[in-house]
């Protein structure tokens, strides 16, 4: 059988998110919108956030890209919906360190669908794909903060 060992990257959870992305599409109303682009491969993502009283109360996204970038973005939405900005920022940092090739990951955080992405670490050229949604989210939050602090 071909592709032995690749299941670590293409776990069924990931393929599932890729094929049925969560919170996919535009929001009726949003407070901030951010586009992310990976010039290396042309992957593109747009994230919209609704932020009320310091919490992410709604999220929508769409874009073009490989299964890893799309699944990671879909998983992200489930991870951060309803969380405070501080919690979201913590998650982003956590995910970034999880994507380090030798990243130390505390077991209790690596749970649920997010854990499914840990296999990407072993495929260095694909780490950027997994990060795209998260860095775009980070930029969206920074943008929101800039608007609301001035």
């Amino acid at each position: 059988m071909a592709f032995e060992g690749l299941d670590e990257l293409y776990r069924e959870v990931i393929l599932d998110h890729f094929k049925s992305p969560r919170h996919h599409g535009k929001l009726l109303s949003h407070d901030v919108e951010q586009e992310g682009f990976n010039p290396l491969c042309g992957d593109q993502i747009i994230v919209q956030l609704k932020i009320d009283e310091g919490k992410v109360t709604n999220i929508g996204w769409w874009g073009k890209g490989c299964s890893i970038s799309q699944a990671s973005s879909s998983i992200l939405t489930e991870e951060i919906l309803g969380k405070t900005l501080q919690e979201v920022e913590h998650k982003i940092q956590f995910f970034k360190s999880m994507m380090q090739p030798q990243g130390e990951v505390s077991k209790n955080e690596e749970e649920g669908d997010l854990e499914a992405l840990s296999g990407v670490r072993k495929f260095p050229v694909r780490i950027k794909c997994a990060l795209l949604g998260w860095t775009t989210l980070e930029e969206a939050i920074n943008l929101w903060k800039k608007i609301h602090n001035s």
């Binding site: 071909a2 592709f3 690749l6 293409y10 290396l40 491969c41 890209g65 490989c66 299964s67 050229v125």
Partner: peptide, 22 residues
């Protein structure tokens, strides 16, 4: 249904070097 990058990774795993991208 399969993005070229995924195809690139799948084929690479079988020793086949192809190009994927723009």
């Amino acid at each position: 249904d399969i993005h070229p990058h995924d195809l690139g990774t799948l084929l690479d795993h079988e020793g086949i070097a192809i190009r994927a991208g723009h």
